[in-house]
Amino acid sequence: MKTLDELNQKMGRGTVRLGVPRQNAAWHLRCAHRTPRWTTQWGELPSAKA
């Protein structure tokens, strides 16, 4: 954290941040609308019961 603080002080506030995604990041919207991974994830297969 000390190094992070020093870099931000030297190069401007918010220049270096932790790897936390922003709320309105462009990839966040794409991720929300992706198709299910039925062909690669067994846990995401739909199941039917009779």
Rank of each mutant, 00 (worst) to 15 (best):
V16P: 00
T40Y: 01
H33V: 08
Q41K: 13
L29I: 09
T35L: 11
L4F: 05
R37I: 04
M1I: 00
W27K: 06
C31L: 15
T35Q: 12
E6Y: 07
A26W: 15
A32H: 08
T39H: 13
T40R: 10
Q41L: 14
Q9D: 03
R30D: 09
R37N: 04
T40A: 06
L7A: 02
L7S: 00
L7K: 00
T35W: 09
K2N: 07
W42L: 12
L18P: 00
Q23I: 08
N24T: 09
W42Q: 09
R37W: 05
L7W: 09
A26V: 14
W38V: 06
D5C: 03
A50Y: 12
W27C: 06
L45I: 10
N24C: 02
C31A: 15
R30S: 10
G14W: 06
D5W: 03
R22V: 08
T15Y: 08
W38C: 07
G19L: 12
W42F: 09
K49D: 08
E6I: 09
T15D: 01
T3G: 02
G12D: 02
Q9H: 06
L45G: 01
E6N: 07
G14P: 02
R34W: 05
M11Y: 15
V20F: 10
R22N: 08
M11D: 05
V20K: 07
T40I: 15
H33L: 13
G43Q: 08
P21F: 07
M11F: 15
K10W: 07
T39R: 11
L29N: 15
A32N: 05
A48R: 12
L7P: 01
A26I: 09
W42P: 01
S47V: 14
K10C: 01
M1Y: 02
L29G: 13
M11C: 05
E44I: 02
A32E: 13
Q9K: 13
Q41M: 13
T35R: 14
A50M: 10
R17V: 11
S47E: 14
L7Q: 01
A25Y: 06
T39V: 01
M11N: 09
R37S: 11
W27I: 14
A25W: 06
N8E: 03
G14M: 02
A25M: 08
E6R: 13
L7T: 00
W27H: 14
P46I: 10
Q9G: 07
P21D: 05
A32P: 00
T15E: 04
E6H: 06
Q23S: 07
M11Q: 06
K10F: 06
G43L: 13
T35I: 05
M1A: 12
W27E: 13
T15A: 10
K2M: 05
L18D: 01
Q23A: 11
N8G: 03
M11W: 15
